[in-house]
């Protein structure tokens, strides 16, 4: 059985007021700003093809754009690295022992060294 998401009101929404305030400020600024008329694209220009051409430094597009070949390669490598990183982070060792990155702030180490369970007082 699925549950409908329900709006929960309460004090946990108070920090959200900061976001609202930010929006108000930005909105006021944007509404007050004036822009000249947009240039727009030429009638019947093939935007998608232009994007494709500019991505590979080709000059056949109807609309001009900058060259992105290097960025393309870099982003490809980045995606690959991110994927590998994600797999590395998510992998669980076969023995069940956690051998991934420990981010317990040294609590495990402290426990084994000092042989005590006491936490820092100000936790």
């Amino acid at each position: 059985m699925t549950t409908k998401p329900q709006l929960k009101l309460g004090s946990h929404l108070v920090p959200g007021l900061a976001a609202v305030a930010l929006f108000v400020v930005m909105a006021v600024v944007f509404v007050g700003a004036s822009f000249p008329n947009p240039q727009g694209f030429a009638e019947g220009a093939n935007i998608t093809a232009s994007i494709g051409y500019s991505m590979f430094n080709l000059d056949f597009g109807d609309v001009t754009g900058e060259s992105f070949l290097v960025a393309f390669i870099v982003i490809a490598v980045t995606l690959d690295v991110a994927l590998d990183g994600a797999i590395h982070l998510a992998r669980r060792e076969e023995s069940g022992q956690m051998r991934t990155i420990l981010t317990d702030g040294g609590r495990e180490l402290k426990r084994t060294l000092l042989d005590s369970d006491d936490e820092e007082g100000d936790h």
Partner: peptide, 27 residues
């Protein structure tokens, strides 16, 4: 982390307000 985010947000808001008041964006 939420507190940090809140502080960042408030900081950005304050910065925008300050710059806007100084730069006359609210005119």
């Amino acid at each position: 982390v939420s507190n940090y985010a809140a502080l960042l947000t408030l900081g950005l808001t304050a910065l925008l307000l300050g710059l806007g008041l100084l730069g006359g964006w609210f005119a």
